[in-house]
C-alpha cells in the first residue's frame, strides 16, 4: 500500500487536508461551471441567431416571385416581391477578390520590410502608422473614397481602358468611377493594416536557426526570406488574408458611400453598377417594410454562408500541408 502518498493524493486523509482539498475542488467546480456555461451560452446564442435569421429568410424566400439565387432585381416594396441575390453575390465576391489581389502582396511586402529589412528605428514608426490605419472608422474611408478616390481614379481608368479595354473586363465608358473596381481598391486599403500586422507577427516568430541555416549556405537576404521566412509564415499569411477577406466581404458603410449601385452585372469592372450584400442591406434597411427586411435578412444569410465557406477553405489549405509546417519541427 502506498500509505505515505494517500493523504495528499487519493482517498480521505486527515481533516485539515480534506478541507483544503475540498476548497480546491469547489474552485474547480465553479470554474468548470462558468467555462462550460459560457461555452453553452455561446452556442445557444449562435443557434438562436441562426434560427431567427433562417426563419425570417424562409418567410421572405417563400414570398419571392423571382428566383432568389439568380434574379437580377430587388423590388420588395410591393407585393408580389421579386428579388434575387445574383448581383449582390457577384459584387461582393468580385470586389473582395480585387481587394485581396491588391492588398495581400503589398501587406506581405510591408510586413517583410518591417520584420526583416528596415532598421529598427524606421520599423517601429512604420508599424505604428500601419496599425493606425486600422483605427480609422470605415465611414471616413467611405467619404475619402467618394470625395477623393473616385475623381482621381478617372484618369487611371481612362488609361486602363485605352490599353486593356479590349478585354472587356477593364473597359471604361467614362463618368464617375463609382464601380466595383474602385470599391476593391478602397477595401484593399482598409484590409491592409490587419493583413500586415498579422503577417508581421508571424514573420517575427520565424526561429532564428531557420534563418541562420539559409544564411550559412550563402543565401542573400531575399533568399533567406524565400527559403526560411515565407515557408514558415505561409499559414500565417493565409490566416491573415482570411481575416482581411472577412472584413472585405462584410464591409458596409465605405462600400455604400462609394458604389453607385444597380441590379445589373456589368461586364466591365470599371463601370459603375452592381452591389454587395452589406451595401444592399445598409442602403435598403431603413426604407424597407417588414417583407423587405425579411428579404434583406435572407441576403445576409447568404453572406454568412459565403464567409463560412471561405474560412473552411482556408482551414483546409492550412491543414493540408501540416506535415511541412514550421511548427512541427
Amino acid at each position: 500500500m502506498k500509505t505515505d502518498i494517500e493523504p495528499t493524493s487519493t482517498s480521505a486523509g486527515s481533516p485539515p487536508q480534506v478541507s483544503a482539498r475540498s476548497t480546491g475542488r469547489a474552485g474547480d467546480k465553479i470554474f468548470l461551471g462558468l467555462s462550460r456555461g459560457s461555452g453553452i451560452a455561446l452556442l445557444v446564442i449562435m443557434a438562436a441567431i441562426a434560427g431567427f435569421l433562417a426563419y425570417r429568410a424562409s418567410i421572405a424566400i417563400s414570398k419571392d416571385e423571382a428566383n432568389f439565387l439568380t434574379a437580377f432585381e430587388w423590388s420588395t416594396g410591393s407585393t408580389p416581391m421579386r428579388f434575387g441575390i445574383a448581383v449582390l453575390a457577384y459584387g461582393t465576391v468580385v470586389s473582395s477578390i480585387i481587394a485581396m489581389v491588391i492588398a495581400v502582396p503589398i501587406a506581405v511586402g510591408i510586413a517583410l520590410f518591417i520584420s526583416h529589412y528596415a532598421p529598427r528605428r524606421l520599423a517601429t514608426p512604420v508599424a505604428y502608422v500601419i496599425d493606425l490605419l486600422a483605427a480609422v472608422p470605415s465611414i471616413v474611408y467611405g467619404l475619402w473614397g467618394a470625395l477623393f478616390l473616385v475623381p482621381h481614379l478617372t484618369p487611371l481608368y481612362t488609361w486602363m481602358d485605352k490599353y486593356l479595354g479590349w478585354t472587356g473586363v477593364l473597359s471604361y465608358q467614362g463618368g464617375a468611377a463609382r464601380s466595383l473596381f474602385t470599391v476593391g481598391i478602397l477595401l484593399a486599403i482598409m484590409i491592409l493594416p490587419i493583413v500586415t500586422s498579422v503577417s508581421r507577427e508571424v514573420f517575427r516568430q520565424v526561429p532564428k536557426m531557420h534563418e541562420e541555416a539559409a544564411l550559412a549556405l550563402g543565401a542573400t537576404r531575399w533568399e533567406v526570406v524565400r527559403m526560411s521566412v515565407l515557408p514558415f509564415g505561409r499559414s500565417g499569411i493565409i490566416s491573415a488574408s482570411m481575416l482581411g477577406l472577412g472584413r472585405a466581404l462584410g464591409e458596409t458603410m465605405a462600400v455604400a458611400t462609394v458604389l453607385s449601385p444597380s441590379y445589373l452585372i456589368n461586364v466591365s469592372l470599371l463601370d459603375p453598377g452592381g452591389g454587395t450584400f452589406a451595401q444592399n442591406i445598409a442602403s435598403h434597411f431603413k426604407e424597407a417594410n417588414d417583407n423587405g427586411r425579411d428579404a434583406l435578412i435572407a441576403s445576409g444569410l447568404v453572406l454568412f454562408v459565403i464567409t463560412l465557406l471561405v474560412n473552411g477553405a482556408a482551414r483546409m489549405i492550412i491543414a493540408r500541408r501540416k506535415e511541412y509546417s514550421g511548427t512541427a519541427a
Binding site: 536557426m209 544564411l215 549556405l217 550563402g218 542573400t220 511541412y324 519541427a329
Partner: peptide, 29 residues
C-alpha cells in the same frame, strides 16, 4: 554572402528547412 558559400557551417541544434523534403534540403545550397 560569397564568403558563406565557401565556408560552410553546422549549428548546435539541427536546423533542416522544415518545409523542405530531405532531397530539397540537401539541394538547397
Amino acid at each position: 554572402v560569397s564568403v558563406r558559400r565557401t565556408v560552410g557551417m553546422v549549428f548546435q541544434r539541427p536546423n533542416p528547412f522544415p518545409t523542405m523534403s530531405i532531397f530539397e534540403n540537401v539541394a538547397a545550397g
